[in-house]
Nucleic acid binder design. Structure first.
Lengths: 343, 343
DNA sequence: ATTTAGCACTCAAGACATAAGAGTGCTAAA
DNA sequence: TTTAGCACTCTTATGTCTTGAGTGCTAAAT
């Protein structure tokens, strides 16, 4: 069936009214919200056809219509007018990000917090993966008689550390050896190089020093693998509690999903193309079959580096939130790119 | 009124049965759970007196009795038999903590996670405060042309960092100056020494280097203040969603409280004396007036260093949880003390 | 060929009544 | 002091009725 201009307007009005009020919208209420005048009967006929087309649905016979997932999809793709971010919002966002502008680790924490605060939904951000980063330096600092901390700094300004324990007393000299050997061998290499196999072969090549260094090597391997893992920042999960279109069990399912960082980051990073909206089943995650995800990849130096997203009920103000996320992800990308360019 | 032996037994039985089932307990059901035989009428009389004394209450006229907060208090103080941790539980706890045994930062994350996993309530732990720690060393690592990272290591094995930006290009030589000057001035001092005033005076004493170092100084100050702040680790907040004696709004209030780390840590750290149970209003926090907090201070080298706690509904299995927390806090204290002794 | 008015129909939600069941409190006997 | 017995209370579940919102259909109007 064709989607006439009038149907499009009616669909848009239904979606917008429903998003605003949360109540199923009836033919009468809808009449008052159209920019042309027709009787409620006409609207009823149109709505009934929209329902047939699978764009609207009725909670029960004598209720108004509610957009179903396909309806939202059409609305977002072809009907919605994007509301640009206001100057105030821009200023607000910028002011939230500025304090951590020089630290990529903290920056993405800040992004998640800002996003959660602005949208009142659950917000996620992934840190720019270690995949592209090189090892800049490896530091060792003694923390007690037999323990020390290995710290890897990367070219992207990320830093990770791990405390490790040796079966012999450490001395500044030993630490210097750790430092010298490992920086000699690893500095400048991509983090991804440091695999268990690589460390193994490195250990083998050390001759009589192998024993001395094995704990340090394991620690460095650990840190490197930590660095390789995409880290996700989560904020505002409890915002979900305040939306009463999410039922108790619905909330639980979302929270369950949010508590699995690998799956979460996979969902976000398999998206592409900048801004994307996943409505309910489009997420292909049973836990999210009644919620929506708005995700935007951010680019660092022209390459997709990470993603930021919000998760909330299907009924949300897409226009506003999409523009917010888009602006935010642009800002983050720009900031990170600048950091990189400053090298 | 006196609390006769029989009343004590009845109170204990009511509390235990209620904790187990979650249903108000009636006189008849109670008869079957007493280690002596009396008629339900007798029990009724006793219960009615316990109610008068403010230890039990009735949700409504024709319902059984439910312990009220004072009732729980008496139960915990004088009636409850502590259930010692089983060997299995010990092994389980130990296995959870061992991986991060050498890293105080991660250890307390692990504790919160373990506690949340075992108890199915929301768990909190505070990291051993920087108050007692000395600065062991300050490292500087360049992260881009004009940014660098300042890292402070403390005597307790804690490490914090901050990226900062300078208005001039950094060189290895400049970083070496940062390193030399700041370690000379600050290494060995208690972290608490590094106040804004102290940094100010330090800056003043640097003569012509003041300009060069001001960004680095501010970063170090920032890190030091970060270190001084008690950090709290939170885990298992969403466990609360699964307890149906907590209503929607109740959960929200608790979550609200949990999201304010300063208040949370204050509540925990103002407790003393090892293990403590705060029932409802005893917390003196309106948000927690219907929940209980079980908190245990842990000692490092004989001094109260931090605290671990769980927060959940008033109706919880105090016996089991108290012994778990006690064991856990003992373990943590021991581990941290060992770390310290290894210096 | 559309659009509209009118009307019968459906269904959810609220109000109200009723019945069942759990548990108490009281009284009087043991 | 304890217990049996019984009346009483209050919740919860169930069922019925009513109301109102909103639809779908039909037939008239444009």
């Amino acid at each position: 069936m064709e989607l006439s201009e009038r149907k499009r307007k009616i669909l848009a009005a239904v979606v917008e009214l429903y998003i605003e009020t949360g109540e199923p919208v009836g033919s009468k209420a809808l009449c008052d919200n159209l920019d042309f005048t027709v009787s409620s009967a006409t609207v009823r006929n149109e709505m009934s056809e929209l329902a047939e087309m699978g764009l609207l649905e009725q909670p029960h016979t004598s209720a108004g219509r509610v957009p179903c997932q396909k309806g939202y999809r059409v609305y977002i793709d072809t009907l919605m007018k994007k509301r640009p971010v206001t100057k105030e919002e821009q200023r607000y966002i910028d002011s939230l990000l500025l304090p951590s502008a020089y630290d990529p680790e903290k920056l993405l924490d800040g992004v998640a917090r800002a996003l959660a605060g602005m949208t009142k939904y659950a917000a996620v951000s992934t840190k720019p993966g270690g995949s592209g980063a090189d090892i800049r330096a490896i530091q060792f600092v003694q923390t007690s008689r037999r323990t020390a901390m290995a710290i890897i700094m990367t070219s992207t300004g990320t830093m990770k550390s791990r405390v490790f324990h040796c079966d012999f007393d450490l001395t500044p000299d030993i630490l210097r050896v750790f430092f010298r050997v490992l920086n000699e061998k690893l500095a400048g290499l991509p983090v991804a190089t440091v695999t268990p196999a690589y460390i193994q072969s490195l250990a083998a090549s050390l001759g009589e020093m192998t024993m001395l260094m094995s704990d340090a090597l394991m620690a460095v391997l650990d840190v490197a693998q930590d660095l390789m893992q995409t880290e996700v920042c989560l904020d505002g999960e409890m915002n979900l509690l305040y939306h009463n279109d999410l039922g108790q069990s619905e909330i639980r399912r979302i929270m369950d999903f949010l508590s699995r960082p690998q799956e979460l980051s996979r969902l976000l990073l398999q998206q592409t193309n900048g801004l994307k909206v996943l409505i309910g089943k489009e997420t292909h995650r049973p836990e999210l079959s009644e919620s929506s995800v708005i995700v935007s990849r951010y680019n660092v130096a022209g390459r997709e580096a990470g993603a930021i997203a919000i998760i909330g009920p299907t009924r949300m103000n897409y226009g506003k939130i999409m523009s917010n996320i888009e602006y935010l992800s642009g800002s983050v990308g720009r900031m990170l790119t600048e950091l990189l360019d400053m090298e």
